[in-house]
Amino acid sequence: MRRVASAVLVLWGAVTVTFLALHLIPGSIVDAIIGQSRVTPEIRAQIIQDYSLDKPLWQQYLGYLGRLLHGDLGHSYNQGVAVSTALEQQAGSTFALLLGGVAFALVGSVVVAVATANRPRWIRGPAATAEVVSVAVPSFWLGILLLTVFSFRLHWFPAIGANGFNGLVLPSIALGLAPAAMLSQVLRQGLERVLEEPFIITARARGLRSAAVLLRHALRHAVLPVVTLTGWLVGAFVSGAVVIESVFSRQGLGHLTVGAISQRDFPLVAAIVLISALVYVVVNLAVDALYPLLDPRLRKAPEVVR
């Protein structure tokens, strides 16, 4: 319950941040809301009424909170539709990309970590170097490199703006590589620590093969430190998706965000910031809920872990 309360607090804070941001924009607030589009005086009056701009600041703030609580994210005057409609149209594409990136990062990091944990230096060394380099490579450059090699030279994958599974492969790799490298570093460290524990020796003494020990016993423990990275990972994936959609000219929320900023479409930008804060909070809550399932030691006394 405490976690839910603090999650609600964080969301409320994020809403406040976007409200303050709107009021920090130089010039009139109505102009900030309509962005670069042109509207009739009637619509201007309507905006002033909708946002209670003729009322004191605290009433504007309460009105803003109230509308968000009813699921009203406002209207994008550049797009000519409600913000929620614009988001719904683009969410699917971004969701597919995020799913692809997360899947690549999870599978890739587990495979690399399991294959290289406790191995001789000539295996671990290059893997560790590759991981450090992978974290340093900017995702948009990786995307360009993948496009150049696999789309334009080898023609294995469609180049730009393609949807469907084939169009998802390269963007997912570009999005997932840096998180994968980060994860496999943490996983390998975790695995190597766990493999020294007595229960692993017991398992081996029972005659389990190395692979079985790694996958059935050690991996479960090695995953635990990853949980502390959840926040970083959500940020990395959401931020990455914005850039990757631009590289691959994909439709999606990131594409929408960049367009919204250059057209100064503030309601849309604010809504996307709020949605990503919501995603962050929900993922963190979900991970908190899953944590005891991974680690039975925490089931009886969940308050000990904080």
Partner: peptide, 17 residues
């Protein structure tokens, strides 16, 4: 906590907006 809940690039984008 609130600032950490907004993914880095998006917070920068909000500032630029």
């Amino acid at each position: 906590d609130i600032f950490l809940s907004i993914p880095g690039l998006l917070l920068v984008l909000l500032v630029i907006a």
